[in-house]
Amino acid sequence: MKIKEGFMLREIADSWVVVPVGKRVVEFNGLISLSESGALLWQKLENGAAEEDLLKSMLHEYEIEEDAALADIRDFIRTLDEKGLFE
């Protein structure tokens, strides 16, 4: 899974915000707000990552049960997918 080109993840005023740039504004005119763990997943997905890579990073970064982490990851991926953000 890889996020489409043309999105920029920015940390502003202690928030994580994704901004579409250039041509991407045509199909996505708005901002996406991400939690800290969302931003972590986003960064991985910018370069392309599989579910197990994401899980590994989540478990490495946060004290969280594997099941809960996996549920969060699937949730996150579903939302991105619904918004058409994957290549």
Binding site: I12, A13, D14, S15, V17, G30, L31, I32, S33, L34, G38, F76, T79
Partner: peptide, 17 residues
């Protein structure tokens, strides 16, 4: 990702201020 654009702008504006 549940925050609406308006909510996000308000949060950011408050914090940035």
């Amino acid at each position: 990702m549940g925050t609406s654009w308006v909510q996000l702008s308000e949060t950011l504006t408050g914090r940035a201020k």
